[in-house]
Write a protein that binds this DNA or RNA. Structure first.
Length: 252
DNA sequence: GTTCTGACA
DNA sequence: TGTCAGTA
């Protein structure tokens, strides 16, 4: 929930105020929220800014970055969940595991938080024990779950969903990695090792694999949700109309 | 005192 | 990309 003035954003992200303004003009950064005359930025801006500077550093042109950003816009909410923007960053480090207290969890989920589903979350690795409290391996996944619960989905179901998601994603990611093994690495022979000038190439293949898997999954799920969500909303509206309610306050 | 915009190099 | 002027 951190707010940044443009100066803060520049310092934290390691760029300059000048460049942030340029990225803004080129449409590479979402418009900031205005408080009077001053622009207020959020962590979302910081995340996007890091992505932009990283891609710039890799030699992408402004126009190319803008194009990719536009292409991702459709699956954006999911990309957030999966950490795509972080994934594209140079230090391909995963999310920062964040400590969280029982008190905070209680504040988020209220009395839906039970010993039973806490245990389930621990089993699934959504939560890990640390001293008196817990640590969240993926704050983004937690945030996504929190959003669902706020919408009215029972916490038990959300945890169940997270488990399914993890299994399915593991499976599909495994298939993709398997294909790369089968067609890129294995044909070279069982105990083949890249030699000499081949090393950088294969190092690059391996380094790019996680982002590729993630963007493929993102695209696939974006397509799927684009199909499923309108159906769901349509069914719900139809049901409401049949039940005689003319002004549904919460159609979803 | 700080931020924004535009312009120049 | 840095910097400067003129504003709000």
């Amino acid at each position: 929930m951190a707010d940044y003035r443009i100066d803060d954003l520049a310092r934290v992200s390691g760029t300059t105020v000048r460049n942030i303004r340029v990225y803004q003009d080129r449409g590479l950064l979402p418009p900031p929220i205005r408080r009077g005359r001053t622009a207020i930025y959020t962590d979302a801006h910081l995340s996007r800014l890091r992505l932009v500077t990283n891609m710039l550093g890799r030699g992408y042109a402004f126009a190319q970055i803008a194009e990719m950003l536009a292409a991702w816009e459709a699956g954006r909410s999911l990309a957030d969940v999966l950490g795509l923007e972080e994934a594209m960053g140079v230090p391909w480090s995963s999310e920062l595991p964040t400590p969280i207290t029982v008190r905070e969890l209680r504040r988020m989920f209220g009395n839906q938080l039970t010993p039973s589903n806490t245990r389930k979350a621990l089993e699934l690795g959504l939560l890990r024990r640390q001293g008196m409290g817990f640590v969240v391996p993926s704050p983004q996944l937690l945030e996504a779950g929190y959003e669902l619960v706020k919408l009215g989905v029972p916490l038990d179901e959300v945890i169940e969903l997270a488990g399914v998601l993890q299994r399915e994603v593991d499976h599909v990611a495994g298939l993709m990695v398997g294909l790369v093994r089968q067609y890129v690495l294995d044909p070279k022979g069982e105990d083949w090792l890249p030699s000499g000038d081949e090393v950088p190439y294969y190092a690059d293949v391996l380094r790019r694999l996680p982002p590729v898997v993630i963007s493929a999954l993102t695209a696939a799920v974006a397509r799927s949700t684009a199909r499923v969500i309108p159906d769901m909303v349509g069914d719900r509206l139809e049901a409401l109309i049949k039940s005689g309610k003319s002004t549904p306050s919460n159609p979803i």
